[in-house]
Amino acid sequence: MLVPAVMEHSLFLIEGGKPMNFEQIVPSMPFILQGIWVTLQIVIIAGILGFILGIILSLFKIGRIKVLRWIADAYTSIFRGTPLVLQLMIIYFASPQLFGIQIEPYTAAILAFGLNSAAYISEIIRAGILAVDKGQQEAAMALGVPYNKMMKDVILPQAMKNILPALMNEFITLTKESAIVTVIGVTDIMRRSYIVGSDTFSFLEPLLFAGLIYYVMVLVLTVAGKWVEGRMRRSD
C-alpha cells in the first residue's frame, strides 16, 4: 500500500534526523528579532521610493508624450521581466562598474527593491487611474480645470480607492521577497537565522523561527490592509 509506505518513510526521516530543539536557539532569538528592524527599514524606504517613482512612471504611461510613455513601458517591462535577485546582484556586485563606488549592501537592497517595486506600482496606479470613469475627466475638462489639477484633485483621489488594496498586496510581497537580500549579506531576519543555524549546526529551528516572524509580519499587514479598505468603503 502506497500511502502508508510514504508516511512510514517520512516518519523514518524525522526519526532518523535530529529531534527539534528550540531551546538551543532561545539565546539567539533577540539577535534574529533585531533583523525585523533591518527588514522593515528596507521594505519601508524601498516602498516609499517605489511609490514615488511608480506615480511618476504611471503618469508617463497615461500621458500624451510618446517618448516618456515608451521609457516607462520599457522600464516596467525590464524590471518585471528579469529576476529580482539578478537586479539585486547587479546593483550590488556591479556597483563599482555602474557607479564607480562599492555601495553598502543595505543601500543596494533599498535601490533594488525600490526600483523593482516602482515597476509593479506604476502598473497598479495606471490601472487604478484608468478605472476611474472617463466622465470624471470630461466633467473637469468642461469646467476648464487644467490637467495637473484635474489629476491631483479629481482623478487621483478616486483612483486611490482602486489602488490601495493592490498597493497593500505589493507591500506584502515586498516584505516576503526582501528575504533575498541575504545573498548580498544584509543582516536581515533571514540572514540572521541562517547565521544562528550555522553556529549551532542546526538550521531547522532558526529558519522556522524566521518563517514565523515573516508570517506574523504579513498577517499584520493583511489586517492593516483590510482595515484601510474598510475605511475607504465606508466613505463611499
Partner: peptide, 19 residues
C-alpha cells in the same frame, strides 16, 4: 481652457465628483 470656463456643460450621466 479659456473657452471652457465660459461654456458650461451638463452631461447625461451628471459626472459629479463623488469624493
Amino acid at each position: 481652457l479659456k473657452l471652457r470656463s465660459n461654456v458650461g456643460m451638463v452631461f447625461q450621466h451628471f459626472h459629479l465628483f463623488p469624493h
